[in-house]
C-alpha cells in the first residue's frame, strides 16, 4: 500500500509533462526472476510431479498482482501491489471494457502514461476466469477448462500466455509497479511444458 501510494503521489506531483521512460528493454528470465529454471523442472521424472512443480512456477506469474488484479472475484478490478479495490469505482460492464460513460479506456490509454498503466487491449478478464481469492489448485483446474478459460484449447492456451498483447503488459507496467516474474516467453514455455507433462494440478 505504501509503495503504491508513493508511486501515485510522485506522479501526482508532476506539474508538467515529463518525458516517458524509454521503451522498456524486454525482461529476461534469470535467477533473479524468482522462477525456477525450466531445465531444473524438466529434470523431474514423474509426469504428475513435474506438471505440479511447473504449475507452481506458472502460479507465481498468474497470482502476481499484474495478472491477478484483472482477474478479480467481483465485477471490480483490483489495483496496486496490495490488490486493493480499484479507485475510482469501476465495473466490468457487458464485455469487460467498462460501462457506458466510464470505460477502461477513459483512463487507460494505449501505452503506460505517467502512473496510469496502458495497453490497447486493456480490459477485465471474464467473470468465468476469476482467480482472486482462489487456491492455486482451483486456478489450475480453471486454466485448463475451456469453459472457464475463454474457450482455449492447449495450443491456444500456450499462444495466449506466450503472445497475447494484454498478457504482455504483465511484464511492462509503469515504473512504480512491479513486473510479473520472469518474462512472457518463459511464461509460454512453462505452460507448454506443464501441458506436455499432462497438465496435472496441485491439490485444490
Amino acid at each position: 500500500m505504501r509503495r503504491f501510494a508513493l508511486g501515485l503521489i510522485l506522479a501526482a506531483g508532476c506539474t508538467k509533462a515529463t518525458p516517458p521512460a524509454a521503451p522498456a528493454a524486454p525482461v529476461t528470465a534469470s535467477p533473479a526472476s524468482g522462477l525456477r529454471s525450466l531445465a531444473s523442472l524438466q529434470a523431474i521424472e514423474d509426469d504428475e510431479a513435474r506438471a505440479i512443480a511447473i504449475f507452481a512456477e506458472v502460479g507465481k506469474i498468474l497470482t502476481h498482482p499484474r495478472c491477478m488484479n484483472c482477474h478479480p472475484s467481483t465485477d471490480r478490478p483490483l489495483q496496486g501491489e496490495a490488490g486493493l479495490p480499484h479507485q475510482p469505482h469501476v465495473v466490468r460492464g457487458a464485455d469487460g471494457h467498462g460501462v457506458p460513460g466510464l470505460v477502461c479506456a477513459s483512463c487507460h490509454g494505449e501505452t503506460n502514461f505517467e502512473n496510469v498503466p496502458g495497453n490497447p487491449h486493456w480490459h477485465l478478464a471474464p467473470a468465468s476466469m476469476a482467480w482472486a481469492g482462489k487456491s492455486l489448485g482451483a486456478i489450475c483446474a480453471q486454466v485448463k477448462d475451456p469453459a472457464r478459460n475463454g474457450g482455449l484449447d492447449h495450443d491456444a492456451l500456450v499462444k495466449h500466455m506466450a503472445e497475447d498483447p494484454l498478457v504482455a503488459y504483465g511484464w511492462d507496467p509503469p515504473a512504480h509497479l512491479e513486473p510479473a516474474p520472469g518474462d512472457q516467453e518463459t511464461a509460454g514455455a512453462l505452460v507448454a511444458a506443464w501441458l506436455e507433462a499432462g497438465a496435472h494440478c496441485p491439490p485444490p
Partner: peptide, 16 residues
Amino acid sequence: VVQANFPAWRVMRMNE
C-alpha cells in the same frame, strides 16, 4: 501529509 491526492485520500463518489 501522507494523503497527497485522491488515490490515497478517498472521497465520497456518486455511487456512494
